[in-house]
Structures are given as structure tokens and as C-alpha cells.
Design a binder for these strands. Structure first.
Lengths: 235, 235
DNA sequence: CTGATAACACGATATTTATCAGTTTTTTAT
DNA sequence: ATAAAAAACTGATAAATATCGTGTTATCAG
């Protein structure tokens, strides 16, 4: 089920396109082929806020969280990158240090692309640059959406929205069966929705009672997406 | 006083560059010269969320707020654009409808740039495109900062941060005297910080008692930026 | 398989923040 | 200059959410 069929599309833009979709054959070879792949275990850090980027990363498999940690050690997850997405390229393009950290949400595999290779494609291929500009602009509107969500929505709405977005990201992971299963810790969920972990548990219980989802240990199975959407909209 | 001298720079990136700084002589002429200027009174709407963009706007003078309105009419200000900044170009580049609305925060003057002219410069000038890519990437990190602020900071921290950012934006407005005066309504402040308007008033009173600022009617005069910064950092 | 460790869960309480229902002051328009 | 409207301000109350303490269950390494 496509979300855009249910929602006014501009209000509910929370997903970005895979970078692989905007690469030409030739650019693909330079950027993606011949790049070594590296495995990361759950929790392994890919880069740390404040360090100087030497290249960008392509997510081959798994899921990567981008997050910031505040003074008292609280973590805020800004984005969850999925298979096919690039991470760390904003900092490279802006010629700045990493504004956030990245680590593996689950076992993942990444390709490292040296920034020289990235810039080579940008300089050589105006069409790639323009597609990148478009993708970046879209990502921008996605992020702007998130701000109004965090600033104005209640805890339960934020959690509901987080679950809706994650559902899209976990869609392709479940080879067996037709149900979408989110395999994510309560703590990570709390850090995505920006609420206390205990509150996540209480709200999940509510959602469960309403028939929206089921839980099996840490696994969350979304049973009724329409109800979940109603919960996200609710006021 | 530069903020980056006080803060770890990556944590406190809340301002973006004027687009005029990244334009070559030639590009400037196409984009900016010969464009008609239009006046907007305080509150006048420049474009509305969901409508189709036919071009972009350059802020010649004044201040423009970009905002989203939710189901119950609550407004969230996402960004305040100052003299020299472009607005509406993300939507044009992404080939999407406007994800937010824009209206004048005070009497302002804007130039309209048809999207054809904008695209012409992009196609003609790879250097402009690359500068745009860089600017956009930077804006992205700015926005990512905002998310962690909204998700994790208390009301008083958010207000303090809003005041720090606004102070930078109102810096050049006060021709007379050396103090920086914010001429902004409590309601707009509330909609920037994402808190209730009554709370803004109460918190301003606190800040006043601490010697951080003074008020004169609607005007807010920042007296002690270091204390204000401490308030933003405080925990 | 099993002990250790981390994650999950839950209730009570404290804290923060929003809402409501006003009054006073400031700003705006005539 | 003055009336009308809008914005600023105040206190009381209600609602939402975080924190704390503690028990339980799941997960993982050896």
C-alpha cells in the first residue's frame, strides 16, 4: 500500500530515494563498482560527529542510523538509511565536518567511496549533479517535515509516525510471510521519536490494545496500518 | 561577536549564507538584475503550502517566515529568511509542490525569478550548480541541527536558541545604537520555538530577571549574550 | 545449556508544559 | 488624539511526559 494514496502527499513525505536510481551506467561504475565492501556489526560506528570526512558511504545491506548525542548523553536519531542510500555526502559537499554520527542499527555492509571519486563524477557529469541537486532538495523538504512533527506533535503521534516510516524501511526485509516486522529496540525507537523509552513501551501497549500492532519480544508486527495512520493524525 | 568563537562550530550551525555571495557577475545579471521588485506588508502571503511553484524569490529587504500549519491551525515556523536569501528554490529543484508556506514577518521587498531563468543559470554554469550543491548541503546540516533541538531540548532551551539565532538575523537592522533589538511578536517567537505563547512570555520574564534581556513593548533587547548562551546550553 | 547481561515492562511520583479565563498594555487606524 | 483592535501579560488548573525504582523476560557469549 502506497502512503501517497492515503495522505495528502506533501504533508507525508518522509522517505528519500535510493541514490542508485539516479546513477547512469557509467557513473555507477566509477562510484559503486570496484569499491571494497566492509561489514559492520550492530552498534559499530561508521563515522563520528565532528570528524573530517574523507569520502562517502553506500549502504549495500542493513540499516544505518544517523544521530546526534547531546551533553547528557541522550541520543537523537535523525535518519535511518536503508539499502541503496548514500551517507556522509552532505558533509563532503558542504566541505564541513560530520554534523552527526553514524552507526549500524543491524548487521550491515557498506562500500566506501573516496571523496575524489565522488567529486570526479560530479565534475564529469552535469546530469548526475542535477539529479543530486534534485535529490538533495527533496531530502530537504523531508527534513523540514520532521521539524514540524517534532515541534508540534504529541508523543503518541510522533511514535505512530516513526512506526509508519520504519514500516516502509523494513518492507523489503521480511522474505518469509507477508507481514512487515520491525526488528528494532525500544531504545532506538525512543531515540527516533524523541520520547522516553518507558513511554515507548506504554504507548506500544496502547497500540497493541487497539489492535494496531503485535509484539514478539523486541519484534513489532504492524497489523493495522490504517489505524496506525489514524493515530498519527489524531487530534 | 561570532558564535563560532564560542561554540563547538558543528553543534551550533544555525545560519545559512546569502545566495548573493555565491553568484558570479554574469549569473547575478540573469538572476537578479532586471527582475521586478514587489513589496509585501507584514502578514502578506508569498506562497502557500501545496501550490505549484513557478519560480523562486530573492529577499531584497525585510524578513520572510517559512512555516507549516497543522490540522488544528497551529503554525510552526521552520525558517526565517533574511535579506539576500532565496526562498522557494527547494521545491523548484525537487520538482515538487511547496512543502511549506511563506509570508512576510515584517514589511519586505522581494524579486521574483521565473524558474526558467533559474534553470538556465543552472544549465549554463556548472560552477553555480556546484556552489548551490554546497549551499544546499550546508542548509541540510543546519536543518538536522534543528531536529535534535526540537526533539530533545526543554522549552527554555529552545527559546534561548531561537533568540540566539534571531539575534544574528536582526544584527544588521539596527542602524541607530549598538544594541541588537528583536522586533518580533511573542506569537511568532512561540511558533519558532515550538512552545505556547504564554510560556514565551513567562520565560522572557525569567530571562529578564536574570539580566539576559530587556523588553520594550514587543521589542526584545538582548543585553547579555553569554548568559543567553549559557541558558541554551544549560542542564 | 546456562549464567550474565541487556532489554523490556510497569507503577508511582515529580516535573514540565499547555490550556483556560481573564486583565492590562500596546499598537493601529481613523 | 482617540477609539478599537490586537498583542502582551497573569494566575490557576489540567494534561502530558519524564524520571525513578524495581521486577521480569529475552538475548547472547562461552
Amino acid at each position: 500500500m502506497s502512503l501517497s494514496g492515503i495522505f495528502p502527499i506533501d504533508r507525508w513525505n518522509f522517505t528519500t530515494q535510493s541514490i542508485l536510481n539516479i546513477l547512469s551506467e557509467e557513473d555507477y561504475q566509477i562510484l559503486v563498482d570496484n569499491q571494497s565492501e566492509q561489514k559492520y556489526q550492530k552498534g559499530d560506528v561508521i563515522f563520528r560527529e565532528g570528524s573530517v570526512p574523507s569520502g562517502i558511504f553506500l549502504v549495500r545491506s542493513g540499516k544505518i542510523k544517523k544521530y546526534k548525542v547531546d551533553q547528557i548523553g541522550k541520543e537523537q536519531i535523525i535518519y535511518v538509511a536503508n539499502k541503496g542510500e548514500l551517507i556522509g555526502y552532505h558533509a563532503v559537499l558542504a566541505e564541513e565536518r560530520y554534523p552527526d554520527s553514524a552507526s549500524a542499527l543491524e548487521s550491515s555492509s557498506l562500500s566506501f567511496i573516496p571523496k575524489e571519486d565522488f567529486f570526479e563524477v560530479i565534475h564529469r557529469s552535469p546530469s548526475f549533479t542535477q539529479k543530486l541537486l534534485k535529490a538533495l532538495s527533496h531530502e530537504f523538504t523531508v527534513l523540514a517535515n520532521s521539524i514540524s512533527v517534532f515541534a508540534q506533535r504529541t508523543a503518541s503521534e510522533r511514535l505512530a509516525i516513526a512506526l509508519i516510516v520504519l514500516r516502509e524501511k523494513y518492507k523489503d526485509d521480511n522474505t518469509a510471510g507477508h507481514e512487515i516486522i520491525l526488528n528494532i529496540s525500544r531504545t532506538d525507537l525512543a531515540n527516533i521519536a524523541g520520547i522516553a523509552q518507558e513511554n515507548v513501551i506504554r504507548l506500544l501497549k496502547e497500540f497493541k490494545a487497539e489492535g494496531i500492532l503485535q509484539t514478539e519480544g523486541r519484534k513489532i508486527i504492524i497489523k493495522d496500518i490504517k489505524l496506525l495512520i489514524k493515530r498519527a493524525n489524531y487530534r
